[in-house]
């Protein structure tokens, strides 16, 4: 509903983007799990200025996550094994969403489940809540019925989750892809055929780090997800591949620290970007990235995002 209203009233600002009917002031969103439920960063950022806030991944019931240590810094990046700790979808709606509704910002609920039915039920509950503008489906979660292999690792499982969520809501559905696969374009095409309105990528790359003195893994979970500047080239390459394989919008994520990084993704063809680990290093990173993109547009006399997105020149490459 609100999306429709916005479509009419939004003055097409230089930075505005339209992702499957979801009109954003600018292409800069926060990445799930790195911005809490928004309130954690309210002292440092004007939340009204964000393109969208993607909240921490939500499950049907609260999840307590993995034992500590959960994080470890690595070369130009970090590993995390938070284990999808979250308050659960009902507490999110009751306790976190009212805060976010005070702001003029699009809220995207990131969801996950251990079974396809859990994805469906979380979607059903969120669709009825006021103030959720889109659903981002994290398919990196292990499928308990399939021996814990991530839904996102196989085209058929990824498509099945997408189809279920698609059938349950009229909100735009963004499917978030894992990079821990042989061919990410195959998964992207599968979720596109299953009805995804957009895809976002990448989630973290599975990694590991060892304490040589104690001869133990640094993380209690042994492995964790790598994020930050270290993953950016891989993320960019995957965005490039996916942009050429699907017709739906692609949201670029991975190691974006500055406006220049964000511009690399946009030029490569991402319709929007998400900022993750950068928030930890610089709590107002998103604000600077928005300003930096605008400066670039002015400097290069680019009137609207459409003229920038996918403007990569590869002739002669």
């Amino acid at each position: 509903m609100e999306i429709e209203a916005d479509k009419k009233t939004v003055v097409p600002g230089r930075l505005a983007v339209d992702i499957c009917g979801l009109v954003l002031k600018n292409p800069v969103m926060t990445a799930s799990g790195t911005f809490g439920y928004g309130e954690e960063y309210a002292p440092f950022c004007d939340l009204n200025r964000l393109g969208a806030i993607v909240v921490k991944g939500l499950s049907l019931e609260p999840r307590q996550g993995n034992p500590p240590p959960r994080i470890m810094e690595t070369c130009c990046g970090m590993l995390n094994a938070v284990g999808l700790q979250n308050v659960g979808v009902r507490a999110f709606i009751a306790e976190k969403l009212p805060f976010l509704r005070q702001f003029n910002v699009k809220v995207i609920a990131n969801i996950f489940g251990e079974t396809i039915d859990e994805y469906r039920r979380v979607t059903e509950i969120l669709t009825r809540a006021a103030g959720v503008h889109a659903i981002e489906v994290n398919i990196s979660c292990p499928n308990v019925k399939k021996g814990g292999v991530a839904f996102g690792a196989y085209p058929d499982a990824a498509a099945a989750v997408t189809e279920m969520v698609r059938g349950e809501t009229d909100l735009p559905v963004i499917v978030k892809l894992t990079p821990n696969v042989t061919d990410i374009t195959e998964i992207a095409r599968a979720v596109e055929s299953a009805g995804a309105d957009a895809v976002s990528l990448i989630n973290t790359l599975t990694g590991m780090s060892v304490d040589i003195e104690r001869r133990r893994p640094h993380l209690a979970n042994v492995t964790g997800g790598l994020s930050g500047p270290a993953v950016k080239p891989v993320a960019l390459r995957m965005v490039w591949q996916v942009v050429r394989s699907v017709k739906i919008p692609v949201i670029g994520i991975g190691g974006i620290m500055t406006a220049d990084d964000a511009l690399e993704f946009l030029i490569t063809g991402a319709s929007a970007v998400q900022i993750g680990t950068a928030n930890f290093i610089h709590p107002a990173a998103t604000m600077e990235i928005i300003d930096g993109i605008e400066d670039y547009m002015i400097r290069h006399r680019i009137g609207c995002m459409k003229d920038l997105i996918g403007s990569l020149q590869t002739d002669g490459c």
């Binding site: 799990g33 790195t34 911005f35 809490g36 954690e40 960063y41 921490k56 307590q64 996550g65 034992p67 500590p68 240590p69 959960r70 994080i71 470890m72 810094e73 970090m78 995390n80 938070v82 700790q85 680990t277 928030n279 930890f280 709590p283």
Partner: peptide, 26 residues
């Protein structure tokens, strides 16, 4: 504990606490 954000956003810095009835919370 090791920290990333320092503001409660990443949930990286948890300690285990007793939640009653033998349950663990972070």
């Amino acid at each position: 504990e090791r920290m990333a954000c320092g503001v409660g956003a990443c949930q990286g810095c948890v300690v285990a606490i007793k939640e009653g009835e033998g349950r663990i919370g972070y």
